[in-house]
Amino acid sequence: MYSRILFPTDGSDVAAEALAYAVDVAAGHDATLHVLNVADTNQDSLTRIGGQVVDVLESEGQEIVDEAAARAAERDVATVSAVLQGDPVKTIVDYADEYAIDLVVMPTHGRRGLSRVLLGSVTERVIGAVEAPVVAVTPDEDREFVYPPRALLVPTDGSPAAGLALRSAIDVARETGAELHLLHVVETASLGFDVRSVVASDQLDARAEEIMTEAVDAAETAGIDSVTRSVAHGRPYREIRSYVGDHDIDLVAVGVHGETDFSRAVLGGVTTKILRSSSVPVLLRREAEPDDAA
């Protein structure tokens, strides 16, 4: 399923925690882990100071990737290491394309300073540009990440992007034996209490049933035996977070619409909130723009 996994790292503590998860994924699929450090040479301060500072950053970057590779070797995970200069987002995306990366694993944020690479904005921009699926990891001291997952959740609104996330989740469930949970949230916050709201609520419930039926059919057709379906009412973001905690979910899979500034995401911005605060890793699939598919 995954044979080449890319882990961009800046050597920060949060990146180290995400590395442990990336190694688990690579070990679980007998995949090669590509460890990448990017010296951000687009910063004005580096341009003014010159090559000496860039050399220092590359030296530090080599130490970072060497340490990560050593940790992977403890699990008998094969690695490929690289230290590159350039814009972090473009360099990560270009690397993923060049080496036909199957999965990118990134922390949602990193350290600040001259060598910063993995700030949240970078992770989000990579998600909006790279063709490969991305797993974003937000370190959580109170929770241990689990891979292979025992249970994974797909919140779906029936959109094409959500369909991509569902297909990825089905692949993971089939490969790992995880229980697949499907959730649709009927957003009721905007509904009033007049006759029109009652009619609208009935229509939303009917649509929810259609979405759930299609998703369950897709999972069962793919050979997934353990499927749990749920429809909740309320604010999607809150209901999804509650579901994760109530059902011991280890991985959430969501879709993202095309190239995005991340104010535009599946479920009307809910993905952004999930990504930035999820207590479990989030698998994101980007829906390609027409130009990408051409």
Rank of each mutant, 00 (worst) to 15 (best):
L119H: 07
D157V: 06
E144Y: 03
G113M: 10
D140Q: 03
E124Y: 14
R150W: 00
A136C: 11
L153Q: 02
S159W: 01
A162D: 01
R111C: 00
V104W: 00
L164Y: 04
S159K: 08
G120F: 12
R143P: 00
H109E: 12
V126N: 13
V122N: 13
G110N: 11
P149F: 04
F145M: 08
V105E: 09
E131C: 08
V117P: 01
E141Y: 01
V134G: 11
D142Y: 09
D157L: 02
E124F: 14
S159G: 06
F145E: 08
A161S: 14
A129I: 01
V135P: 09
G110D: 10
L152M: 08
V126S: 14
E124V: 15
S159N: 04
A129Y: 11
T108S: 10
V105K: 01
T108W: 11
I127Q: 13
L119E: 14
G110T: 10
E141V: 01
A136T: 15
L103V: 11
P148D: 09
D140N: 13
V130Y: 09
E131D: 15
V135F: 00
L164T: 02
E131I: 12
P155D: 06
E144T: 10
T108C: 04
V134Q: 12
P155E: 08
V135G: 09
L118P: 10
L103G: 07
R111H: 12
P149T: 04
T156K: 02
T138C: 03
L166F: 00
V117G: 08
G158P: 05
V130Q: 07
T108L: 09
V137K: 11
E144S: 07
S115N: 13
L166P: 05
V137M: 09
V104P: 06
L119G: 13
L164I: 02
P107W: 13
R150T: 09
L153D: 02
L119S: 10
R111A: 14
A132D: 12
T138S: 10
G120T: 15
R112V: 07
M106V: 14
G163H: 04
V122D: 09
A165P: 02
A165T: 04
